[in-house]
Design a binder for these strands. Structure first.
Lengths: 241, 241
DNA sequence: CGCGATATTGATATAGATCAACTAATGTGG
DNA sequence: CCACATTAGTTGATCTATATCAATATCGCG
């Protein structure tokens, strides 16, 4: 099942078998996109949304001088631009960081499905407001944490999200981001990210080798980054209205 | 009409008279809240959402040491915590900055109304994803702009939003925020905000007097803050699906 | 009028940026 | 499979924007 990771670890259990099937039916056959490919540009009108099956993507905004600010890291199971369905025009770019497997949901199909399954509409709405909750935590991270805290917080968040979709083994996960990407996510320079990583490595809290990261001391990283996973809305299953 | 400013300047024209009436009916009678009153705390379960009729509110997250990061400034016509409807538990605090007039929408009433008016559901969804678009721009602002740019961008955004609901005359609007608030919105200290404001005042781009702000040179401020209003989704009225 | 809250200014400290090599990987065509 | 090119990572030296600390001035209100 293509969308098996959608809302996994959140309220997926509230989806009926019929609804899960309906999601599958609104998705096109999966396609593969090479790494570092931009699939949406700011200002673009969109008529379909992208579901990420495997790989990493990110959303970002470029400033006047081409400096880039990441807005989100997208991991398997994310409906990357579901907000494009109500918005119809996007205010940011989207690009692949690794080779990605995706399936598209044409907006007219979403509309058709939601007419038959109104409750599924609330679940999709829920997915977009969780996305906004992540944005809020990013604002906090950039506004109030120092360099080490930002990196730690970002890694804790990513690890927790990846764990929820089964992409973490023994605290380690694939990591296609280069240090420049980390810098663009945390509002730092790549030079400073490099120094922060060294510090975390030397403390024995982290291991970054090649294209993989191992979190060795999650507790300490979480303390450093003032991370708590409540804003991810994992694990709880109150009824979606 | 209590909710006359809801989605004003956006897709309000798509609301039928019946739908506008339905919104009115899901709102409780307006109440007044004194300035600097916290109405929601992080982690709190919510069973109603708050519509802001007049006054200013803000959402924020406190860090471990009580330092505060604003996540948003809420202006008249905002459905401040509509995302609480699908989320059911909030990940941030909400407080009034000035005396505010609000009306509450109990979630069970929203549910009832949406059953009768599915299209209204898409409009509410649209309102929450626009809110997320603002969050994204705040991430950009904090991650990529310097102090003066952040202040300028924030003021341009606020002025544009207030203008859309008719709260700006001759570039001037009420301003209950103290410099400490501006600092908490822009990730700076109040001392530095003070210096940036002086600079903008001396350049003749701005006039801050008492509890009012006048934007004297919007163009230059917008250039300084790399502001463009596209992410506010004003003025266009593509059909909400 | 007087007191607490807010704004302003100056002096000094510092986290992180910038600039500039240099090294280590990774990839590629012959 | 090697030679070379390209990309990514690392380190040191220096600079600068903003924080911090501290004092004073002004505002708004009871």
């Amino acid at each position: 099942m293509i969308s098996e990771h959608f809302l996994q670890g959140r309220r997926r259990s509230q989806l009926s078998d019929q609804e899960k099937l309906a999601i599958e039916e609104m998705l096109s056959p999966p396609v593969t996109i090479p790494r570092r490919t931009t699939i949406i540009r700011r200002g673009e009108e969109v008529s379909r949304s992208t579901f990420l099956i495997s790989g990493f993507m990110c959303r970002y905004i470029d400033d006047r001088n081409g400096f880039r600010q990441f807005l989100s890291l997208q991991t398997p199971g994310d409906f990357v631009d579901l907000h494009g369905y109500p918005l119809q025009r996007l205010d940011h770019e989207i690009t692949t960081l690794s080779e990605c497997r995706v399936a598209y949901a044409p907006h007219h199909k979403i509309t058709a499905v939601l007419e038959r399954f109104p409750h599924l509409g609330r679940m999709l709405w829920f997915a977009t407001v969780v996305d906004a909750a992540l944005h809020r935590e990013w604002i906090f991270r950039l506004g109030r944490l120092d360099a080490a805290g930002r990196v730690a917080h970002f890694l804790c968040e990513t690890c927790t999200r990846l764990a929820a979709v089964g992409c973490v083994t023994d605290g380690a996960f694939d990591w296609p981001l280069i240090q420049q990407d980390l810098a663009e996510a945390t509002g730092l320079t790549s030079v400073h990210v490099n120094r922060v990583l060294r510090q975390l490595r030397q403390s024995g809290w982290l291991d970054v080798s090649g294209r993989r990261i191992a979190i060795l001391d999650f507790e300490r990283l979480a303390a450093l980054g003032e991370f708590s996973d409540d804003y991810l809305y994992l694990g709880d299953t109150p009824q979606t209205p």
